[in-house]
């Protein structure tokens, strides 16, 4: 346990002091992106990792919150009501999304979420009177929580960091809780869970709602970061990107989606600096990870590390 705490402390110090040792607005912005995409990935991981329900339309839920912020700001509402409205809209959309998708599990769930995601993408793209179509919606400025200006890269980084830490803490608490254990039970043995007195559908539904909440929060951070929202954010590639974060890092682990978000954002930023072929690489990484390291980087590394460590000490498991 002590090694855990040291690692946690080191990570906390590194994150808090990041703007001081990572010079340059560009790098601080990359760090902010990693953090809010990590919140998104943590949200998807709730159902995909702990619930065994792989959603391929999550970018739509992410995008809805972002659009609502943009739309409300454009129509003269303040930041507080825009954020509140986005959270409520995100949760309402998630409720409908979950109610439809949870008609099925497994492959059926993938298909329905994919179809729902594509439909919402199509809506964003074609419902021009509301979404401004392909041109998207521009934002002007960020909110000032408690009177603090977060327009600078560093200030926005800290605001994102606070939300990120809260999200990680919420997921950590949830995973250890009875409801978290029940969710993992429905992933492994849904039939048995039902026979033990659990309402499997309701557990999955509430897990979706928690996932949707984190996704909405991430969507709000995203739109305030980029100051822009367009249908591209809701596209299947965006849903696939966040799923790749979860799977590459390690689905069903706390650290996995965070590592995955870091990996995907860094690779994407680096690669797009040289070539435009990000989608090809995204697809290739996807195929490679699924075939070669299906458990993801974090569990894979932990397994290798444990084996090496135990080998050295000569202890058996």
């Amino acid at each position: 346990m002590r090694r855990h705490q040291i690692a946690l402390l080191a990570a906390a110090v590194a994150l808090v002091t990041l703007p001081y040792w990572m010079s340059g607005v560009y790098y601080i912005n990359v760090a902010s992106q990693i953090l809010f995409f990590a919140v998104f990935a943590l949200g998807l991981n709730i159902i995909a990792g702990y619930g065994g329900l792989v959603s391929l339309g999550h970018a739509a839920l992410f995008g809805i919150s972002a659009y609502v912020v943009g739309y409300l700001l454009q129509h003269g509402f303040g930041h507080a009501s825009a954020i509140l409205g986005a959270l409520l809209a995100g949760l309402a959309a998630t409720a409908v999304y979950a109610a439809l998708a949870l008609r099925a599990t497994g492959i059926g769930f993938i298909m329905i979420t994919l179809a729902l995601g594509e439909i919402l993408w199509g809506l964003a793209y074609r419902w021009i009177s509301v979404t401004n179509g392909d041109n998207g919606i521009n934002l002007h400025g960020r909110p000032q929580p408690f009177g603090i200006d977060i327009n600078s890269a560093t200030a926005f980084y800290y605001a994102t960091l606070i939300v990120f830490v809260a999200a990680v803490a919420a997921v950590a608490v949830f995973v250890r809780s009875p409801l978290g254990a029940a969710l993992m039970g429905t992933r492994d043995q849904p039939r048995r869970m039902n026979a033990l007195g659990y309402h499997v559908w309701a557990i999955r539904f509430w897990a979706c709602m928690f996932s949707g909440l984190l996704t909405s929060v991430a969507g709000i951070l995203f739109v305030y970061y980029t100051q822009f929202i367009s249908p591209q954010t809701l596209a299947l590639t965006s849903s696939a990107e966040v799923l790749l974060m979860v799977i590459a890092g390690g689905a069903g682990t706390l650290l996995g989606p965070i590592v995955g978000a870091g990996l995907v954002v860094v690779v994407k930023s680096v690669v797009s600096g040289f070539i435009e072929r990000w989608n090809f690489l995204l697809g290739a990484i996807f195929v490679a990870i699924v075939i070669l390291m299906p458990e993801g980087l974090v569990p894979g590394t932990v397994r290798l590390w444990r084996r090496a460590w135990q080998g050295k000490n000569g202890t058996s498991p």
């Binding site: 949830f174 250890r176 009875p178 029940a182």
Partner: peptide, 12 residues
């Protein structure tokens, strides 16, 4: 069989 199964906050 306990209502605690819905609790998302406590450590099991």
């Amino acid at each position: 069989l306990t209502p605690m199964r819905w609790n998302p906050l406590i450590n099991m």
